[in-house]
Design a protein around this nucleic acid. Structure first.
Lengths: 261, 261
DNA sequence: CTTTATGACTCCTCTAGACGAGTTGGTCAA
DNA sequence: TTGACCAACTCGTCTAGAGGAGTCATAAAG
């Protein structure tokens, strides 16, 4: 058996053994000794190398996994995680000039970056607004909204789920209620309906995903999500849409421009 | 011993026992049966309730911890995590009108929200720019920059670390090189030096923290961080500062306004 | 040549213990 | 009353096993 590229344990350290082992492997990844997609030595190899029990090795691997550095594949091994190509979201992505080309923001951007965009799980329903959505839309409690939910994928890999809420009073009976909202997306439809869009406000949180989100976005363990809530305002100051999106954090870099004014 | 508020295991389910147990506890937290700060039953109690080995219980608790739902305290127990008050960062926080009041953005905002702000670990040094920083500042490789690093705390709790990089050619010998950068912070100094600020670009990533970040921000396990890189541009289009900040994700909600243009 | 078995190797789940170390609250002596 | 001590309880670390299940390459059978 080839020697593993890890130093020995420091018996005098008060750092726990499994942490020292995790440190060794992490260092190897950070230094590039192990690179993306490489297989980490198996539990059995590490047990022998370090002369410790299996649970100790598993604890060490668990640390790395929860840091998002590795992925375990049942029956195959543990691998250094490879990052998917990131999608940059610029703050002008909803500018009218983009919308007018007749494509929704996601499609246009992804194709521009050489990826194959797709959208699935489109569901539209009318429902009572949650207190949070009602407040953001400036609606009375219990008002009805049209909810459009969908999932975005790049090259078949899910990257984002989104649910848009629009006041039923605005969207009911329009193409916004159809699964295919037409060229330019719902923002184009809103403008056709006379709601000229003025500005968007985005609120961003970061947290660990819920179970459903892990499933929907096929997230590896240890990958947090962006939770972004966007509210669209028309020129009269009225909120016309709230979009609640959850994005895989390793597929995105968000970018915003702020005036110094 | 009081009965625990958890159902029994489903022996027919093919869901692993430790996952079922984690599900029970998670449900209790989500339903409010266990609320913020409450103590989760001890490992011993759970072992007896479910009739399983200790490692199985610990696996279940590990799942919850990595989801950021609970926090274990050595010698005390496992508790439902309570969210600290969040700090909202609005996109106008660097507007000149705020700066002119003579306080740095962080101090003014935190006091406005009723918290006690403090800043520590201020270090200033001159160093060669990293390739990334050099590129953002539009400098030649190996150019020198002034690096100002510091840590921000609210009510004694660290929430953010930040390192600002400014071209040495601009900042050397000015008050920017002093630990106390003076009223209004370095942006005020830059304007005094004739660099009228025009706009900022912020790039946001979300990821799990590195070890040093966990220590510096006293992060609970399972809490991701925002990694925000801000570049400040003067009116002549020149980049005059790059600020690299790492923020505890549960202390912040970022908020940006985008024009529909 | 294709298909089917097999076995080696992988990680997954779980058991049943051991000792260590931090926290807490009560007892008992000063 | 105060302080020191101690016991009970907590989670942290580690050992040494067990059987299960997914993956893959190879060997055997068709």
């Amino acid at each position: 058996m080839a020697e593993l590229p890890f130093p020995e344990l420091d018996a005098h350290s008060d750092r726990a053994v499994f942490r020292q082992i995790a440190d060794h492997i992490r260092d190897a990844i950070e230094r590039g000794t192990l690179h993306e997609g490489d297989k980490v030595p198996s539990e059995a190899q590490l047990m022998q190398h370090y002369g410790v029990a299996r649970m100790t090795i598993r604890n060490a691997l668990q640390v790395l996994q929860s840091e998002g550095l590795t992925v375990a594949e049942h029956g195959r091994g543990v691998f250094v995680r490879s990052r998917p190509p990131v999608r940059r979201l610029a703050s002008d992505r909803f500018a009218r000039r983009h919308r007018e080309r007749g494509k929704a923001a996601f499609i246009a951007e992804t194709e521009g970056a050489g990826g194959k965009p797709s959208v699935d799980s489109i569901k539209v329903s009318e429902q009572a607004a949650s207190p949070d959505v009602a407040e953001r839309l400036g609606l009375a409690d219990g008002s009805f909204v049209i909810a459009r939910s969908r999932r975005y994928l790049i090259n078949g890999q899910p990257v984002e789920t989104a649910v848009s809420y629009l006041p039923a009073e605005i969207a009911k009976g329009t193409q916004i209620e159809q699964p295919d909202s037409g060229p330019g997306g719902i923002y184009a439809r809103l403008e056709e309906l006379g709601y000229r869009l003025d500005r968007f406000v985005e609120e961003i949180r970061s947290r660990m995903p819920l179970r459903e989100e892990i499933r929907a976005l096929k997230l590896a363990p240890g990958v947090p999500v962006f939770h972004l809530v966007r509210t669209a305002y028309a020129t009269d100051g009225r909120a016309v849409e709230v979009c609640d999106t959850v994005m895989s954090s390793d597929a995105y870099v968000l970018s915003y421009e702020l005036p110094a004014r």
